[in-house]
Nucleic acid binder design. Structure first.
Lengths: 192, 192
DNA sequence: TTGGTATCGATACCTTTGGTAGCGAAACTA
DNA sequence: TAGTTTCGCTACCAAAGGTATCGATACCAA
């Protein structure tokens, strides 16, 4: 194929590689000022970039935050011998990620924006939740509705604690969460 | 005492009894337009009241929503013979309330606003969460941190489902939530 | 009846913020 | 050199939370 269809480098000035800088500036700004006060203007200034450059790459602030979270989370580690170890490590992993500076605030903030914004909710569900949901479905062999319930419990609990107290959940409570969730997903073989 | 200190009816024109109308207008507007688009202007118009009247009674939109939710929730029913029945009825009660039109959206919306607003977070925690937390502590004889964990799990799960899907949690999943939470709070006697 | 007080609706206004438009300059290809 | 796209910059718009002001109104007390 003679460099036929895609990825033949588009014409024009290439984009500068500042995505990582923008992501870092986003998290640090959210961490310093909170989600609502982390305006696009401030994020752009912190990144040393014009606001228009950000809107040239992301269609909305919500989309920027989602991409930033995707970059911050990265792939879910597929560790653990059995089901219990796997699920326990997954819960500890997401809890640790949400505890990182700015990540929990950004997550809770974009989540709340999505409540009133169906388009953003679609982005959040498809880009951020679905990859991990599919990985969990495959790794656990559980149907979609049970995996979605698992995500609701784990992420919902962690975000509620973050939103109500402003602080991430302490390790002891994360351990309690694991103890409560695991029996429900390892004892029986899909009773309902 | 000669009507000494408090509640002797303050001077001036008394406030008209439109709080209930404003609460109803708030929930219906949030239900129709979503939290972000339910502006104070629109809520006032729906209630047939001037916007300045609303800001004369509530210091912020968040405070209005919290009062509206307090009015919508009402006191938690203290039903159930044993611990299991009591906790089960409490979970079903809050799930049903969050399913009412506008209530879930308003709850998730004010919750998310609180992430970046410590003052609003304080209002939310003290006015909305604490009464139910204290009732649960007394009814269950559990320490504060365990009751807070219980609230994080139940409310967090319900709100996460609401935020991600836009729909309240179906009864079958609420039942699963009860099945998962109850053993963790009824089997052992405070191991940690 | 008169004065004091606080609420009412209405209007105008301020500030912040997400998002857009237009411009000249720069970077890259052909 | 021509063409294309991104860059930073400035100006701008619209929506929304919140405030200030003003005349009118409802209530109490003297």
């Amino acid at each position: 194929m003679t460099r036929s269809t895609a990825s033949a480098r588009p014409p024009g000035r290439p984009r500068s590689g500042v995505n990582a800088v923008v992501f870092a500036a986003t998290l640090s700004t959210v961490n310093e000022l909170g989600y609502a006060h982390a305006t696009v203007d401030r994020i752009a200034a912190a990144a040393g970039v014009a606001k228009t450059t950000i809107y040239r790459r992301w269609p909305s602030k919500g989309a920027l935050i989602v991409d930033c979270l995707l970059d911050a989370f990265g792939p879910m580690p597929q560790e653990g011998a059995g089901r219990a170890e796997f699920m326990s490590s997954a819960i500890h992993w997401i809890a640790a990620k949400i505890s990182e500076p700015g990540v929990g605030d950004a997550f809770a903030g974009v989540f709340s924006d999505a409540v009133s914004d169906p388009a953003l909710r679609e982005v959040l569900s498809a880009r951020l939740q679905d990859p991990y949901r599919l990985a969990l479905q495959e790794a656990l062999g559980e149907p979609e509705n049970r995996v979605l319930f698992f995500i609701d419990v784990v992420v919902g609990t962690l975000l509620h604690r973050m939103g109500m107290t402003g602080e991430p959940m302490v390790d002891a409570d994360v351990a309690r969460l694991v103890e409560m969730v695991l029996p429900h997903f390892t004892d029986d073989a899909d009773p309902a």
